[in-house]
Design a protein around this nucleic acid. Structure first.
Lengths: 230, 230
DNA sequence: GGTGTAATGTATACATTGTACACATTACAC
DNA sequence: GTGTAATGTGTACAATGTATACATTACACC
């Protein structure tokens, strides 16, 4: 069984206690130290468990051991906090994709490598959606005013966002002669749409009844068809 | 320009006034008459403007001219109200699809007709998403405990839901010999995923910047590719 | 090293929300 | 005509987001 590596989330994971009880963090100093990070971490944990609606500002400050209004020194309002969580989620997704890409074996066949890269993007995308539905839901479903599509905070370790990682996969396919340059934009939209739609339908749509193994099998078939459809 | 026909919504459309002001409906009778419908209509109107989060229970009762707690005689809680709106949205979508199907011209070519039907489903789906983003967002994004996928309240005039209408289109394609029976389930998921994903990405994802004419062109191309990919 | 100032956290307060509980009104079956 | 179930109201409460005023402290500057 594969386990996700969410480097953003590891720090605060052990700060949760039993049901409903919230840790009272007593700090000696008046200043918190890194409240922004503490708030964001707590918010991410809440988002993991219950999606956007679970990210309630007062609960976040409670978990950080700080008064409710302290949050306003770091986030304009709850919406801004949600946006930050959204970008963290996008980043975690990008890291997942990067990891999957790095797992590709070596080969001399350029076309083979390009295809493997595209498949890696799709596979990681679907796996992330299933493993972290709360975060996945927030990655794109938060009304984000500033276009954080290419914001560094939304990127993975390579500095590329999930969307850009798909783009690089397509570039490799173009280099390998599998698709034409004119078709690139459309191929991007098509591939993204199919995988994204499948993920969404599985999480909150009529495909909710699929179990994970079924989902993975169908997901792979879907990626196959997308690859051929490009 | 095409305009949607939302028969569910026409009644209460004219009940809205200027910004923020809410009509005070004074009724002579103690009983409302059809409060369930009034509440649902008001909720749908709010959902049209601001999605699920705009459906606030107290505002709904205000618009119906009734005390907040009156709603609890007809809906167990806010969640139940949201589910009802979700089903109404699914129904409106199904009607859109039916209308588009009925617009198909006559032909002797069975395969041609089957293809036109599939395209009609996809076209109507995307048009509805663009024309009624608030409702579209609620059609599938509400955590609906009871499987309302084949609930009559979610269906169109034909008694079929949007999902089932896609199914019938695929059946016609099977009859025409365009796809095999074994491939049906997957084809259903694939077609639905691609169109649904495109819609979602346009409404709340990285494709938000697309304008409507671009969206329609790409949407048609996407439907083309799906058709071939089946 | 002392001090002023900006940054950061707190206290108090308020409007709004969902909803529980007791009560009022009325349609309708008998 | 009357009793009963259905439907709407009044009051109340805890929780939330956030505005405003205040307290504490890190740090730049002399």
């Amino acid at each position: 069984m594969y386990t996700l590596h969410l480097q953003l989330l590891t720090l605060s994971t052990n700060m949760n206690m039993a049901n409903k009880t919230t840790i009272q963090i007593k700090r000696s100093t008046y200043r918190h130290g890194d409240l922004y990070r503490a708030l964001l971490d707590a918010a991410v944990q809440l988002a993991r468990k219950g999606g956007a609606e679970a990210v309630v500002l007062r609960e976040v400050t409670r978990q950080a051991g700080v008064s409710p209004n302290a949050a306003y020194r770091h986030f304009a309002d709850r919406h801004a906090l949600l946006q930050a969580v959204s970008m963290a989620a996008q980043s975690a997704l990008a890291v997942e994709i990067e990891n999957e890409i790095n797992r590709i074996g070596k080969s001399d066949d350029q076309l083979e490598l390009a295809r493997a890269r595209l498949r890696a993007v799709g596979t990681a995308y679907l796996r992330f959606a299933l493993a972290e539905p709360g975060l996945f839901g927030m990655a794109f479903s938060v009304p984000n005013d500033l276009s954080n599509a290419d914001n560094p905070a939304s990127a993975g370790e390579s500095g590329l966002t999930a969307y850009q990682l798909l783009g690089t996969a397509l570039d490799k396919l173009i280099e390998a002669g599998a698709i034409t340059q004119e078709r690139r934009q459309f191929a991007e939209i098509f591939a993204w749409s199919a995988v994204h739609g499948f993920a969404k339908l599985m999480l909150e749509g009529p495909l909710r009844s699929l179990d994970k193994t079924q989902a993975e099998v169908i997901g792979q078939r879907l990626i196959d068809v997308v690859e051929r459809g490009l």
